[in-house]
């Protein structure tokens, strides 16, 4: 096993790069599709108010989809999905590091995940 690239072995370095690229591409395209689709639906339904229009849906609204505007629901889901992507990438790295038994990196990834989790408390405030 050749060691050298970015402090990782060739194999795990490539695993991580491929996994990051795939996750970023799939999640960001899904998020953008939801956002653009939702906005087009919103514009087509002519539900526009004065600039800058409606705000995104509160989190509580996301759990009651029948009572909420589906177009805004789609945009909100897209924003949340994109917002969660950095955390997903760190969790992905954590999984790959754990598989390779790189415990120092696992601990660092956990610290960063905890930092992000602490910020999520902000939603409820």
């Amino acid at each position: 096993m050749t060691v050298g690239i970015r402090g990782l072995s060739e194999t795990s370095g490539e695993d991580l790069e491929v996994a990051m690229k795939r996750a970023s591409l799939v999640v960001s395209l899904a998020a953008l599709a939801l956002m653009v689709g939702g906005l087009c639906w919103h514009l087509a339904a002519q539900r526009l108010r004065e600039w800058p229009g409606d705000t995104v849906m509160p989190l509580t609204g996301l759990f009651h989809p029948r009572t909420t505007d589906p177009a805004i629901l789609a945009v909100s889901a897209g924003v949340l999905l994109l917002g969660l992507l950095p955390a997903m990438r760190v969790v992905l790295a954590l999984g790959i590091y754990a598989g390779r038994r790189r415990w120092a990196d696992v601990v660092l990834a956990i610290i960063v995940v905890l930092e992000l989790a602490a910020s999520l408390i902000g939603i409820g405030q």
Binding site: W51, T55, V56, I72, S119, G122, I123
Partner: peptide, 17 residues
């Protein structure tokens, strides 16, 4: 950015338009 964006989301500072 992800560490702060949910605070702005929760406060209703994000406008689809």
């Amino acid at each position: 950015a992800a560490a702060s964006v949910f605070v702005y989301y929760g406060r209703g500072d994000l406008y689809p338009l």
